[in-house]
Design a protein around this nucleic acid. Structure first.
Lengths: 215, 215
DNA sequence: GAGTTCATGTAAACAGTTACATGATTCC
DNA sequence: GGAATCATGTAACTGTTTACATGAACTC
């Protein structure tokens, strides 16, 4: 149900076309959501039928016509009700963590390769966010204004930034741990996995989990 | 597509019923995935039709019969191919961050209330993970064994733990920032939001973003 | 007697992705 | 000439959630 509120939220600040909305989703909002044009356009039509938004056609030079949407009072109410409703339990989905969970099934070299690739992927996301953040800060300073909307979008950006930074750090630490435990992947005839006394790993393992264990 | 691999991954280690699988999803795997029984049962039937898993009925005393599934060689191959395939771009969805992004639309008291509620929610998740982690560590020590599977599930658990910890810290820091900027929510007749010179916020804002800005 | 756990499912609705369709303009 | 950007959509498929259905046993 969040897509409709993502659209209503955007239109509560600016008027925009479906194409503009998609760009916002791909840019700043990519920290917490993503969507396809083929989902956005039907949703906009649905919202208009429900009288939560209005549309008008704008002719452009050298570009196709645009269908610009604006939020209605009913739409603003709908958005407010959503924002004032009790919080929902977070529903996490992270396909890479699921993969990682089962990586005892592939050779340790492949595990290390995958962790490295994922670290790169997350580093790219971090770089993108750095760029967005510095651009925004520059614009805030230049225009010398502060609004609640700017504040809230900035705190979300910070959360996204932190998340990438910490995921990268986790990749690095996990790569080190897997490297130092790589003999667990050795296959001895018939046995699908090596079982070794824990004592061999105690120091390394306990160091990796030090922050969880202290208390 | 990840549900099928979550199931295959679990069955690569133990045999289990749909009900058992659901419990695993709600327990350790809740860090990265969640699913309903009404999705798991049809998926199991699909996997059996594709000969990736086999089933047998087990009679139990005082409890209903169980349909126990085991993975086939073809199933193991399918799992391996997934694990060896190139990584996919992470597709993040975080409804709470989306809400936060648009919270300039509700009174600042409500913003603080929501951030506090969410902090509580995440704290509960953290406590649950602490419990799981300490139980697992106890069991590892007692049985005195280490396997690649135990290692990989532990690193995923650590990631989940870190994520909760950092989300809670973000909630706390954001609550403080919003409190010190609460006058941005003041409504003056007609105006939907207050616009103030940035200079008033420079110190607070820059302190909050210090870690991003240093470089 | 009511609620929870165990156990397996179906049906309908909703959400999300991929493929297809069209067509102009701008950039290399 | 080909690729990318601008612009709006439909159709088919896949994935996910909610509601419905059944029934035994155990706990408070």
């Amino acid at each position: 149900m969040s897509l409709r509120f993502g659209i209503l939220g955007l239109l509560s600040e600016w008027e925009a076309s479906g194409y503009d909305i998609k760009k916002e989703f791909d840019d700043l909002m990519s920290i917490f959501w993503h969507s396809h044009l083929s989902q956005i356009y039907p949703e906009l039509n649905k919202l208009e039928k429900e009288k939560l938004i209005n549309s008008k056609y704008i002719a452009q030079e050298g570009k196709p016509d645009k269908k610009i949407y604006t939020i209605t009072e009913k739409g603003k109410e709908e958005l407010m009700n959503w924002l004032l409703a009790p919080i929902e339990a977070p529903k996490l989905k992270d396909a890479f963590l699921m993969e990682t969970f089962f990586m005892d099934n592939i050779p340790v070299d492949e595990v290390l390769f995958k962790l490295n690739m994922y670290k790169k992927e997350r580093t790219q996301r971090l770089e993108k966010m750095k760029k967005i953040m510095s651009e925004r800060l520059k614009s805030i300073k230049e225009r010398n204004v502060m609004k609640a909307r700017i504040l809230m979008s900035s705190v979300v950006l910070k959360r996204g930034y932190e998340q990438e930074l910490q995921y990268i750090k986790w990749c690095e630490e996990t790569i080190q741990l897997v490297k130092s435990c790589s003999n667990l992947w050795e296959k001895k005839e018939g046995r699908s996995s090596t079982i070794l006394p824990f004592t061999n790993f105690e120091v390394i393992f306990m160091r990796y989990f030090a922050d969880i264990l202290e208390e």
